[in-house]
Design a protein around this nucleic acid. Structure first.
Lengths: 195, 195
DNA sequence: CCTACCGATCGGTAGG
DNA sequence: CCTACCGATCGGTAGG
């Protein structure tokens, strides 16, 4: 039994670390950072209470890594989705839909953790803020382009922030089995921005 | 010294209860429910660690009361602001600006606590949800009226939810000493909705 | 990665 | 509303 499986899982340490990251992200999103126990996280991946600390120095480090790596994975999905798309309006629609995916599909939902960075110390919070800025910077170019050709309702400075509000707040009310699909919600959000 | 002040503060028990509620709301908003200690709350109003439990049965009850009473106070401000205003577009602008006040001015910021209702048991969560629904119901009439006369960008069903997203998410980025005033942000949000 | 454990903190209570 | 306190839980560590 151990023989045939050797190649299936390369670098088992990395995979375990990833398991912890994914379980932590899910629990942090569901219950909040402070209400989640390192024991909960360990149990979610079948470890004992002390073992997560073999992979991460502290609970805060787990949160920091989950947020940064989750944001970077989301950013890669964003770039892949708009790769080669010239029309900025179509690009915006794709970004909105992809962001909903990062936020509400899959099993990490990292963008919903942004508020938990208040639980980090200043240094870690700065690292997370930098990753979050990189994620948002990817949007500014498309918004500027739309504003330049007059296709944005409002080119005022809070537009990007209001847009992220519409999108990120959906984590509070969206239900996969509800009456609205993510495609529909994404379309409605784009409609509000585009002229 | 005790003589002359007797009339200044009527019903001191109620006032102490209110002090606790305000301090709790502020701390819950700043640090989150789970990360806030009942000792923190007691200290914030000059009590000893056991004393909040003379006014509230449990930490959860404190959260429930802070949320419900805060939402009701906000709803009263909302109604007062639009009292006698006939133009639905102007009413919407006033509601948005007043909601920003409930959210970001004063010292309770109750709407930012909605996410913390996950820390309540099912019965308490239902009570809070009912108060939150009443708060949101006040908006639906105005939105319907605007949709009926074609002055809403989109009359799709998620518009109210997307609107609340724009507004409530601002708690994540708005700074009183930042470049944008609440008047400007409120105006930008209204611009996105109105045609 | 597990076992066994520690010190600190926390929500809540008794009794006044 | 305070004093004094309890039981439980939690993040983290030593040592293997």
């Amino acid at each position: 039994m151990p023989a045939g499986h050797r190649r299936a899982r390369a670098a088992p340490e990395l995979s375990r670390r990833d398991d912890l990251l994914r379980a932590a992200a899910r629990l942090f999103v569901d219950r909040g950072f402070a209400a989640t126990t390192t024991r909960d996280i360990a149990q979610a991946v079948g470890m004992r209470s002390g073992s997560p600390f073999y992979h991460f120095r502290s609970k805060q480090e787990l949160l920091k890594a989950a947020m940064i790596e989750g944001l970077e994975a989301g950013q890669r999905r964003l770039q892949a989705a708009i790769n080669g798309v010239d029309d900025p309006a179509r690009r915006l629609r794709l970004m909105i839909r992809t962001h909903f995916g990062n936020l509400l599909e899959g099993d990490c939902h990292t963008p919903m953790l942004i508020h938990e960075s208040r639980s980090l110390d200043a240094a870690a919070r700065a690292e997370v803020a930098a990753a979050s800025d990189r994620y948002q910077a990817a949007w500014q170019g498309t918004l500027d382009e739309l504003a330049a050709c007059g296709r944005l309702r409002s080119s005022g400075s809070p537009v990007r922030l209001l847009l992220f509000g519409m999108l990120n707040w959906s984590g509070q009310w969206y239900r996969p089995d509800g009456p609205l699909s993510l495609d529909e919600i994404a379309e409605a959000a784009a409609e509000l921005l585009l002229r």
